[in-house]
Amino acid sequence: MKHLSPAQLVDVVEGTAGDTLTAHCAGCPACRTKADELRATLAVTSANEVPEPSPLFWDHLSARVARAVRDEPVPGAWWQRWTWQWVPLSAAAMVLIAVGFGVSWRGISIVASHPASELALGPAVPLDGIERLDAGESSDVSWTLMTDLSSTVAADETLGAELPVLPDAADRALHHLTEPEQAELIRILHEEMGPSARMAPRPARK
């Protein structure tokens, strides 16, 4: 006769064994003796209580763990913390970057689409010029915002605020350039204004 294995005896003692194993244990003196011994030892072991600590101990333990944890870095991966804490800030930063990029891009477009003489003399960029650029880019929210704001500003008010470029500002700015810078500027202007434009190089700054 094959006796029950240790795992099967545990099942019998815990009452989770099937009918076959239980019947075998009932009819096999050796297995029954082992099962009875296990039950007796289990009863003695189970009755062993742990001394209950003071009720204050549990709060004390929580405080100890909290102090220890406070010195530790947050355990999550960096992207998990990023999504939780930095989403609003990141969204705001992205909007700012988008607005800034849009404004810069339009600024480049304006400079590129106007002759240098216009940029240097009088009101550099007429308001109707801005409106013209905006007409084709009405879907750009940041650009719409900028044109909305600027469209309410009158030319006289900008003069009063000393915002426009003064008539001789370009000349004075040229005097501050070095010779290589002046040569590069002339090359760019020739490139932008086409072969018809002719500018005499200014004398080098003393």
Partner: peptide, 23 residues
Amino acid sequence: ACLAGRRDAFDLLVDRHKRSVYL
């Protein structure tokens, strides 16, 4: 929540399991 940066979430976990861990 704790992995997302909420340290107080871990305090709750400690409170729930401190007894069994101590025993």
